[in-house]
Design a protein around this nucleic acid. Structure first.
Lengths: 154, 154
DNA sequence: CCTACATGCTCTAGTCACTAGAGGAGCAAG
DNA sequence: CTTGCTCCTCTAGTGACTAGAGCATGTAGG
């Protein structure tokens, strides 16, 4: 009977890094793990699945709190999934906004790179375009809400 | 003769928030500002333009260090712009990777929302899709390099 | 001139989601 | 028994801000 695997194996299986797995336990996204005699965490298949769930959710752009909600839904499956659906819908809207911004951004960078004649900076549009507001065709920030400002997340 | 404007005015004109303007000075992205008798920062048109430049670059997804390089290029315009071009090119590649990931993500979320029948969580694919690797059609993380893993960045 | 009140200043600490490193313990192979 | 890997806890650092305390300054109205 398999009692469980080590954190390293669970990490590899789920695609989450070892320190991040511990971090998830620390912030309560993963439950406190069963330990061996030697104080090492043991992960069962359900735990690995949960980690995989978290990784996917993160890759899909869900924030930790949203994932927490989803996990709570999963832990008590007799609730309506309206909440989960709402979260997914909200995420979908944000993803679409981000794609739109990035497309404008892509066009801008293409233009910048295309127009750069590899001469001196004085004639290089890479600088000019970013310095001069009126030349910038990327105005997503004016259309976007506050939420989408960090294409980077910060 | 206009000696300059206050930080609030410069912030409004450039679209950068006041604390962020001070932060940029603190990390050396903006030079130490001239002060009034009452120790308040004074911003000239060139400073506002620089702030605008920084904001645009940030919105385009440039990291602070990349912006620092670009600003150094701008400060000494007799250099080749090959470096700036490289930065823009690298950014363009990353933007395209991000767009690809987000498109896959969009499709996944559309499917998730579309298949959710608003019943109980047990039948809700929003949970299942994220928990079960083999059902997930979003495998951008396997194709992407290490750089793109954080669709979110930091 | 006096009073509000907005705006400015510095400094510290908090945010998010990790990531890195110190310093030590456990464990399997040779 | 030693080597070398993985694991443990704990603290501190990252990036790019953001928030708040506590005080100074500037301005408009009365």
């Amino acid at each position: 009977m398999s009692v469980g695997v080590s954190i390293g194996v669970a990490a590899k299986a789920s695609g989450v890094k070892v320190p991040t797995v511990r971090f998830y336990e620390q912030i309560g996204l993963m439950p406190p793990m069963v330990r061996t005699d030697g104080n090492r965490r043991l992960y069962g298949p359900a735990d690995v699945k949960r980690l995989t769930f978290i990784r996917h959710a993160r890759e899909l752009g869900f924030e930790i709190d949203a994932i927490r909600e989803l996990l709570q839904l999963q832990d008590q499956p007799n609730q309506s999934c309206a909440v989960a659906d709402d979260i997914a819908r909200g995420r979908l809207g944000e993803v679409r906004r981000r794609i739109a911004s990035l497309r404008a951004l892509e066009a801008e960078l293409e233009r910048m790179v295309g127009e750069c004649s590899h001469g001196r900076v004085a004639e290089c549009r890479v600088i000019e375009v970013l310095a001069d507001h009126c030349e910038c065709r990327f105005h997503a920030h004016e259309a976007d809400g506050a939420e989408a400002d960090g294409a980077e997340g910060g």
